[in-house]
Design a protein around this nucleic acid. Structure first.
Lengths: 230, 230
DNA sequence: TAATTATAATAGTTTTACTATCATTGCAAA
DNA sequence: TTTGCAATGATAGTAAAACTATTATAATTA
């Protein structure tokens, strides 16, 4: 197997130093993912991260201004990576509808073939994004962050999906909102199935695969929403 | 005009003392709404609230354990109130589809006739919910909070909307997920139009009414998703 | 009027968030 | 090989946030 290098593209105002360029930085990212997954964003802080990775608080602060930016970095990394994955997974699919469905499958992360670097646990990062992505978007600083390019990776991904929607049904009036909506829903529905099942259609005690169910639900919605044209 | 009293129903593990039962408590809620709207949840704390309302930090702590619970309280209040509003606004609408559409209108808060108590600025509370509701749902303590009944008001609202969906199209396979989805989307889309327009279908510089646009977009989606049957 | 309760005023503790300083390490250019 | 320099570690410190405790006083209630 050839070693695969993915160079993710992340806006450089998110970090003070690019963590992916140093050994310590990659270690930081690795343990940030583990720790965030373990204790959640509210309990997470740089002191705990420093202890966990065997470094010091001061060193962490040399890479990121604060924990919000670290989270923003991980989320940006995730979306850039998912964008890449969607490109890979949907190549050579001639059927437009099948192509969009495959995008959804990639989104809910039911495909396990991600060529993810060893320092990132992709499943954990996925859960971190599910639980915390909205904290990056819903902040009073949204307009400033937007100008600084914090959200470009997510926007690119949404653009890609909305193009696929337009391909299927050029008359659909709100392709971008629908794309945003299914990305949001694919994250949330999986979370709700696990934690708040009464917000979904699976019975309380049913043993279902949250990813598969979510994928089916989104496909169903798209199937209804988009008019067949060949 | 008769004085209208709404008694909202909020799970009693959210607070230490019910703020709506005392003058100080109502003052607390009033200024919490103003201050949260002004500076956002991250910058908000009990010291600032105490100063703003002319009381002390200790007094605030007698009502709420911490700022997360205060936020949870406001969100629970909001959903219970919205549930009530949806009941009011959709009475005597015979057409099932029109009834669901009206629910969406009420959700995006385009109806301005809310009989809201004087100590709550409804438009500000709406924005607080848009910006912060996900912070109440996406936390590591979700399972405990769920057991304590933090989310029952939201669940009741979703139930009501999913029933309306089922009324229109009994064959729709995921009425609850769709209901959850349109509630989420109605909050988010309005926010995106204002702050991240490239996640929506409105052009960057377009001067549109975010609420009206959102309502139209959701109606359109529902119109496509739900099969006509009379 | 006495007892109870709510609040204000004050003062504290602990934790988090962040900054500063300086010694040490490793590596690269001279 | 030495010199210089950037990265890190070790340590210490400040400021604010997140809470807790104590007491005095005002307002209610019995």
């Amino acid at each position: 197997m050839p070693q695969i290098h993915i160079s993710v593209d992340i806006c450089d105002t998110i970090y003070l130093r690019d963590p992916l360029e140093t050994v310590l930085g990659r270690k930081m990212i690795k343990h940030a993912v583990i720790l965030l997954h373990e204790i959640g964003f509210e309990e997470f802080n740089f002191k705990k991260l420093a202890i966990r990775m065997g470094s010091t608080e001061a060193s962490v602060y040399r890479y990121f201004e604060n924990k919000y930016k670290l989270l923003a970095y991980l989320v940006a990394w995730y979306w850039d990576f998912m964008h890449f994955m969607i490109l890979m997974d949907t190549r050579n699919i001639p059927d437009k509808r099948e192509k969009l469905y495959r995008m959804v499958d990639t989104l809910v992360n039911s495909l396990k073939t991600a060529p993810v670097p060893e320092y990132i646990d992709h499943e954990k990062l996925h859960m971190i994004v599910v639980e915390n992505a909205s904290k990056v978007y819903h902040t009073k600083q949204v307009d400033r962050l937007q100008k600084e390019g914090f959200y470009t990776n997510f926007k690119k991904l949404v653009k890609r999906i909305s193009d696929a929607i337009r391909d299927i049904d050029p008359d659909y009036m709100y392709p971008v909102a629908l794309a945003t909506n299914i990305v949001d829903a694919s994250l949330n529905n999986e979370y709700y199935i696990e934690h708040l099942p009464s917000l979904t259609d699976v019975p309380e005690d049913a043993q279902v695969n949250a990813k598969t169910e979510t994928s089916k639900m989104i496909r169903y919605l798209l199937d209804r929403a988009l008019v067949r044209n060949g």
